[in-house]
Nucleic acid binder design. Structure first.
Lengths: 188, 188
DNA sequence: CTTAGCTGTTGATAAATGTCAACAAAATCA
DNA sequence: TGATTTTGTTGACATTTATCAACAGCTAAG
């Protein structure tokens, strides 16, 4: 049983038949190590569901520094969202963190799925709501906490990330340099 | 004609009749100078639409410092969103900035409105999507720019705010102190 | 009008975080 | 496996931003 089907079951009251229909619309997409799924300047044509591993959504500044906007973990879906919903070019890139297994559905397929499975639209709304709430949480963290507080909060909320993700990705997500993160770890 | 009706017309293809129906569901709510609409610890029972002025959504830390999570300007709606959608107690407060004119709709009324005007649910989804996109933009700004860059960006994107809002509210929104903002202004 | 509070500015200083460089350890790939 | 690249750590130092304090101007209330 795919992680996707389980996730659908958990977050909706769709019938098994409809779960199967939705799940079938997402196609496995084979990826390589650190593969870029959306490149800055592209239009994000697909929504990605993570079966295993992590995706990172990041932006770069003029000096080439990278900043991780979001980390998408197993059982979550995402893409360069502002580009995806507007179907305009993306300012962000999406990349596998190491090895990842993903499914994907195109923007057009997703629209068709709304027609074919009306309840799915409400589920999609819920997914967006959850994503929005988590982004609000992120904003609060960023405006109200210093680096150490953010680090400790993430350690508490997402302990797995520290085992499974390279430190520089975590640092980018926290909005600090990898050197600062390294020092926070050691002075615990 | 209310700002609300205009906004509905602009962002949806609802008929005039349905616009009237939706607009009628939002009730004027008289406010006083700096009135608190949602208090930390309350459940956010209402969604607020701003006809005039600004609302601020803010959190406080242990030392009593305030941090402005969002500013809701004329023609926008908002509330302590995580609390509103879950109907659980809010970690944030919502307050008028000075004098403001607002309309509001209760959580229950909103659910009824979905039933009565099905197209409204899609509109609501779009509103959430837009809010989500703008929160993503905020996150990027916060993780990738320093205080001066954030200040200059906001000055460019929201020049009105600097005329209409007190500097300490802007500073809280930028995630800096009012002293730092004052210095950024003078060293332009 | 006058007093008390709020708002914004400036200075001195401290604290937090970034930058750059060197190096060690680990992972990847040919 | 061995070579090469990536990742993580540490130190010295620079920069950014916060904190604390003083004060001036404005505003609102009695």
């Amino acid at each position: 049983m795919s992680v996707l089907a389980e996730t659908l079951r958990k977050h909706s009251s769709l019938s098994e038949k409809r779960i199967a229909k939705v799940a079938a619309a997402y196609k496995p997409f084979p990826t390589k190590h650190n593969q870029l799924l959306v490149r800055k300047g592209d239009v994000a044509k697909y929504l990605y569901f993570v079966e295993k591993g992590y995706l990172r959504v990041f932006v770069t500044d003029a000096s080439g520094n990278q900043f991780t906007r979001f980390l998408i973990e197993e059982g979550m879906e995402g893409t360069a969202f502002p580009s995806f919903i507007s179907q305009k070019i993306s300012s962000a890139s999406v990349q596998c963190v190491g090895k990842a297994e993903v499914l994907r559905i195109s923007y057009d397929e997703l629209q068709k799925l709304y027609q074919a499975v009306p309840e799915f639209e409400r589920l999609y709304r819920k997914i967006i709501e959850m994503a929005y709430v988590s982004s609000i949480h992120r904003i609060e963290t960023l405006i109200s906490m210093n680096a150490r507080e953010r680090y400790l909060q993430l350690l508490k909320e997402k302990p797995k990330w520290f085992q499974q993700l390279p430190a520089n990705v975590i640092a980018e997500y926290l909005g600090i340099t990898k050197e600062t993160l390294s020092r926070l770890k050691s002075t615990k």
